[in-house]
Structures are given as C-alpha cells and as structure tokens.
Design a protein around this nucleic acid. Structure first.
Lengths: 216, 216
DNA sequence: ATATAAAATTAGGCAAACCTAATAAATGAT
DNA sequence: ATCATTTATTAGGTTTGCCTAATTTTATAT
C-alpha cells in the first residue's frame, strides 16, 4: 500500500472521529495540501472502496478503509512505545520517527514487536493501542474544555502532534497520570487555569485542547 | 534522501566492491531496470556529487557516495540482527524487511538500536557491521571457488539475497560457523562438492558463490 | 427566491522515475 | 583499419501526486 494513500486514510480517520463527516476543504487544510489534490485522491479512494463520498456533504471511510487506518494507528503507537521504552527516545521525539516507520514495518514485524514489548495497552501519550484484530481499548476521557471548575482530574493522554507543547508540559512536569485541579476557565479566549503541585498554570486553548483527562 | 537514490548508491557500492568500475549495462541488469533509466540517474548522481563517471569506462562512488552506501549497509545489518535476535524472525525472512526499513530509520534510531543490541560486530549472515563512523571490521574470507580441494573451511558469511538458498542451506544444517571440507570441484559447471557432517553435498555454482568461508 | 460565499471540481502543468524505440559512440576482434 | 558488437544516450511517453487558475455547484442568509 502506497504511503500517500495511507496518509489520506489516516487523516480522514482522525477527522471523522470528531466531526461526523469529512469534507475536501477540511482535509486539505489538515494535510496542508490543496483542495484539487484532495478531490482527485478522494475519487481514487472511493473507486478503490476505501471511501464513501457524498459531494458537498463529506465522505467517510468504509469498513475496509477503517481497517487500514486502525492498522496504521496500531503500528504508530507500538512504535512510539518501543522508541521511548526500548530505544530511550524523548517524549517529544517519538512521534516523528513513528510517523515515517508506520508505513513500512510489516504486520509480522509489529505483531512480534507487540509480543516482545509484552502487549502494552496504551502508548506513551496515553492513547490506546489497537490489538491485532483491530479492537481498541477505550478509555472514556474528556478534553479540558469539558471539565468542571474545582474538580480534580488525571491526565490520560496528550496529543502527540506538537513537539512544542510536549516540551512545555514536560518542562512544568505534567505527564500521563499527573493529577491537577481545574482552577478557572477564562471566557475571553477559553484558556484554562489549573492548579498542579501547589502552583497555578495557565494553559492556552491550543494547549488545553491537546490534553485529555479522566475525572478523579 | 530519496529511496531510489539510495538504492542506486547501494547497488553501485556492492558492484564496485568486486569489479573495479561499474557500467550502465551491468547496473541496469543488477537492478532489473533498463539502461536509459540508469543513464538518467547516473547523470543526476554525478551532478549531486555522489558519482564520478567516465562514459564507456564505468563510474565509481565518490567519498560522499560511499559514505551513504556504508550507512545504509550499517542500517541493513543492524536491522537484520534485531529482526533475528529480538523479533525472532527466520534466517531467510530478515533480508526483505531490512531492505525496506533501512531507508527509513533515522541515524539516531540505528545508533540507539546498536547500543541496545550491545554493539554486534557481524550480522546473522556473517557480514561485518560498519560502526557509527563507517569503519568496517574486516574478515578476510574467500568464496568457495577460491578454495582448495581437500582443505577444511568454516562458513563466515552467506549472501542474503536469495531466500531459496538460505532455506536450502538451513535444511541441510549449514549455518555461520559450520565447518566442512572441499571434496571436489566439477569442471563442467563449477559445482562444488563438500563433505559436511559425514555426508557429501553438491552445491551448484550459484549456491557456492553465495557462501564465503575462512580457512581452518 | 436569490445573491453571495463556501465547497468542489475541471483543466492544464510540473517533476520524478520509470518505460520503449531509435540512434550514436566506443571497443575490440579480425 | 574496419566493422560488428556492446554500451550508452536521446527522444518521447506513462503514471503518480502534487500544483495554480478558472469554473461550477451547493448551501444558506436575507
């Protein structure tokens, strides 16, 4: 399977996770390419049976398409785990390397790796790792903006796309499993103020959006 | 660096190892592509400073080109070692997987892997693994056709390109370190007859060419 | 109901890496 | 020294995935 096709499928998968359907414009923006490029590829993916498309109403992955997406995510997360735990990469380095390798390691490679790593259930960013059959352990977590002021939460996952954010959080000591209280939420720009280890920190909307927590 | 460019460089490197200079025709045959394709790429590689070309007399890698080749070989061999020893792949499976991955693992990845594997000096086929600075431990080995009838030898390496040959050798029990005596060499087709563990085996020229040994 | 803005597509191009067919250049065997 | 053979290159074409510019389609806000 071609890298480019896999990339489209993966991006569509993550987008359709939140919004119900994905449009050409949104996908183009997310992938940082132009709309005609997306349009063309959507045609191809639809013909290949990975996508069902309703122009001006968005498209969705078929079962086939989802299978590929989940397999890629499985590879990505197991690779991240391996890079961090075995090869001692830093928290903020593993995403890039995994992003490349996920397209080239075989299923056999990843199954063996999973077994050697002793079947981890979550990757280093707290995201669940799909098993060999595509089943995904679900952790009912929520985004910071859905939390309640005054309550306590535990970090369950952090989006791994931005190295800057990962570095920043690492700097103030927040990691998977860290607990904090929601101190306040600013109306102006949706910033969140948390109280973590006796200190208050303001997290911009972008940062807080990348953190998922569970109630404690 | 593009996969295609790396592939050319690697193939040129292995060819210039035996013959002094490499020509368009030979390389095309080895890579299973046409001469015009090679011609075109040779122009590009020359412009990029990886190759020095003397039309009708062949080309050679520059220092730059060799550096890339050695780095790829280092990645390939460490990956093979990892696949066999850690992920428990079979002897005849590792080449293919390593061939793909070698183009996509970063230098950092491979350095960390080397360290986790405790700095192996030879890969599972008996080939020396270049170190991080490109130095290659040399084992003065010879091809079976350069051996002497009646003498004893130890297998030091086996070419990893053909799964069939690897499987066959595995079947009769020959591996790195196996010792045998050269019993005879047939003039007709350069076959070699060896005596290994009390039994005689005939090895076709193709097979014997893929085995390197050291005198014992 | 219609105009405008947003979304999508079409048309036409480019670069990379391959191809076939045709041609040119060099080697080397006589 | 010549000429057949081998080696290499040119010319022109294909596919893939991207691009810009132009155009069409749809949604929706009044």
């Amino acid at each position: 399977m071609k890298t480019s096709i896999e990339d489209y499928i993966k991006h569509i998968y993550t987008l359709q996770d939140s919004k119900r359907r994905v449009g050409t414009a949104v996908l183009a923006q997310k992938m940082d390419i132009t709309m005609p490029s997306v349009s063309e590829m959507v045609k191809k993916l639809t013909a290949a049976g990975y996508l069902r498309n309703k122009p001006y109403h968005g498209f969705l992955l078929t079962g086939e398409g989802e299978k590929i997406a989940v397999s890629l995510i499985r590879k990505h997360r197991l690779l991240e785990y391996f890079l961090l735990k075995v090869l001692n990469f830093e928290w903020d380095e593993i995403h890039q390397e995994a992003e490349t390798l996920e397209h080239f390691v075989s299923d056999k490679f990843i199954d063996r790796l999973e077994s050697v790593l002793d079947f981890p259930k979550f990757d280093p960013h707290g995201h669940p790792i799909p098993d060999g059959k595509g089943r995904i352990p679900n952790a009912k977590s929520l985004v910071l903006s859905d939390t309640v002021i005054g309550r306590n939460y535990v970090v369950s996952s952090v989006d791994d796309k931005s190295r800057e954010i990962l570095k920043y959080l690492k700097g103030i000591g927040i990691k998977i499993g860290s607990g904090f209280r929601i101190h306040d939420m600013l109306e102006v720009d949706k910033s969140v103020i948390i109280k973590f280890e006796r200190k208050k920190y303001l997290l911009s909307k972008t940062i807080s959006d990348s953190i998922r927590v569970t109630a404690k």
